[in-house]
């Protein structure tokens, strides 16, 4: 077997590593470099994010390869389903299922977690220092962060609820809704200000009320664990969600109550 590096691994080597999670490494890169200065290439089009589901030593190689391949395929399918359904998600730019690499549109913006003053990830090592706020930040500072985007906290919550509602109306369950997995696209970018849902690695299709309610519950927990005084914030999310799902709200909200109760019981026992 030849040991020369594959093209995609060589691409990763030439890219800038941004973060390292348990499942994937994240890089920023540029493709389609023109040989001479060209009029027709928009720079923004050429920047992309590469998500590398690297090889897991503890898994059998062929099982690892097929699992990786299906995770990449699953993430890509969830993204295209969302795009067709009008949910704001990153576009897909390249897929190398053999190497476990998914290339998606670079979102020029910040995570909602960051904008709400939740600081850097606790479960991953964030390398890009621009994203890490220095020291403690107070309310006033968060408001300043949002001001740059021209949105209030309430408007942001409204955008989140609206996007999740569209996604659930398309029977797509995100599977890992947190404020880190949503970004606000900067108003100066070509597509304008948008709330963009990201990280569809655990997404799946389902029509079940239970799955949608659990998806919301996961986000509710994420809000309360990373953002102080999150209750009114999350209430704003649900208000917009209710509007977006229309008549489906009754069943989903009832189920959300059940899921909360189950969660509370579990935490009392555990």
């Amino acid at each position: 077997m030849s040991e020369t590096k594959s093209a995609s691994l060589r691409l990763l080597e030439a890219s800038e590593k941004i973060s390292q999670g348990a499942e994937a490494k994240i890089y920023r890169t540029q493709l389609h470099d023109p040989v001479s200065l060209s009029e027709s290439t928009t720079d923004g089009d050429r920047v992309l994010l590469l998500k590398h589901r690297f090889h897991k030593q503890y898994r059998h190689p062929s099982l690892d390869a097929s699992l990786t391949k299906s995770r990449i395929a699953g993430e890509a399918r969830a993204l295209i389903k969302c795009l067709r359904s009008g949910v704001n998600v990153p576009g897909i730019r390249m897929v190398d299922a053999t190497e476990g690499i998914l290339g998606i549109e670079w979102i020029d913006g910040k995570s909602v977690r960051f904008l709400l003053g939740g600081g850097a990830e606790d479960d991953e090592e964030v390398i890009e220092d621009g994203d890490v706020p220095e020291g403690e930040d107070d309310e006033a500072e968060d408001e300043d962060l949002l001001k740059e985007y021209g949105v209030s906290e309430d408007a942001l919550m409204n955008m989140i609820g609206t996007e999740i509602a569209k996604m659930h109306q398309a029977d797509t369950i995100h599977g890992d809704l947190t404020t880190s997995n949503m970004m606000l696209r900067h108003p100066s970018s070509p597509k304008g200000l948008q709330l963009v849902l990201i990280d569809f690695g655990l997404a799946y299709m389902s029509t079940l009320v239970e799955d949608k309610a659990v998806d919301l519950y996961v986000l509710e927990r994420a809000f309360s664990s990373t953002h102080p005084a999150s209750e009114p914030l999350f209430a704003g999310v649900l208000k917009a969600y209710e509007k977006g799902v229309g008549k489906n709200w009754t069943a989903i909200s009832r189920r959300l109550e059940d899921v909360r109760l189950r969660g509370r019981k579990r935490s009392m026992v555990g």
Partner: peptide
């Protein structure tokens, strides 16, 4: 956006 993304993922679209 939809068309470009469809092209990018064709190798894994079922």
């Amino acid at each position: 956006e939809i068309v470009t993304s469809t092209v990018a993922m064709k190798s894994v679209s079922s």
